[in-house]
Amino acid sequence: MLVRIEMELEDVPGQLVKVLDPISRFGGNIQNVVHQRDRKTPLGRVPVTVIFDVDERARLNRIIAALRNMGIRITRIGEREGMVKSIVLMIGHIIHTDIRDTIDRVNVIRGVMVSDLSLAMGAVGEESAARATIMASDEKRARAALSRLEKIAGEKKLLMITSLEGM
């Protein structure tokens, strides 16, 4: 299974190597490491995402236990087997048309979750812009989520901009 662990590390030398060690030692095959030094948390920690492949749950549990024992702050663990990620922009009166409702109506689709939302507010009376990341367990659900969002965007007069790859 493909696993994604998001952590926050202290901004001191050697931290990244320290967390990668138990992952590979317990049989995780690291696929990708995203070390976002430019996106520190308010407490000055550095968000790090590691995606790795591991063949059984027992090994994953040992990896997580080892990281926790080291005092690493884990913010999210997700199995990402075949997860499909879609990025969507929306422009319009996003807040005034109930952004909570927009997200909820996408989230109720099984296997679909809006995992990230960034908002840029317009000046008073002007339109705002939002970027949403939608994770879906497979292509079919990803398409369902996008077409649901398209319908909502139509109702709420939002301009929805999807990625070229999905066309």
Binding site: I87, G92, G122, T133
Partner: peptide
């Protein structure tokens, strides 16, 4: 016509 610079910035960040 409705594209705003903020929207472009959000896209760039991703």
């Amino acid at each position: 016509r409705r594209i705003r610079p903020e929207a472009i910035r959000l896209a760039q960040e991703a």
